[in-house]
């Protein structure tokens, strides 16, 4: 499997580390972080996964250029459809 880093081009899997599902944004909460709603939102964020068989957005880290990526990859064929640099808004 190779991944095309937006900065470095097509590179071997060895250079990358996978973090996991990039489909949920970190809950944006103000106020009581210990409320039932906040607990439920963070439990969901940390532990629940869609885990689909098919296209899947994932966070990958490219070591040589120190960049977090969002990779859209098919979990059935391992085919990479799209790679973009992660933005502040979708930081894990």
């Amino acid at each position: 499997m190779r991944i095309t880093c937006p900065t470095c081009g097509s590179r071997d899997l060895h250079e990358f580390h996978v973090l996991g599902e990039a489909e949920q944004a970190r809950p944006r909460l103000s106020g009581d972080f210990d409320s039932a709603a906040a607990r439920a939102a963070f439990t969901d964020y940390v532990y629940a996964r869609r885990n689909p068989a098919g296209p899947h957005d994932e966070y990958w880290y490219h070591g040589p250029c120190d960049t977090w990526l969002v990779v859209r990859r098919d979990t059935r064929s391992h085919e990479v459809h799209d790679v973009r640099a992660a933005r502040g808004g979708d930081r894990p």
Binding site: L13, H17, E21, A53, H56, R73, T75, R76, S77, H78
Partner: peptide, 11 residues
Amino acid sequence: DPFPSYAQRGG
């Protein structure tokens, strides 16, 4: 294999 997969073969 470190990434999620439904392919019954590894790398």
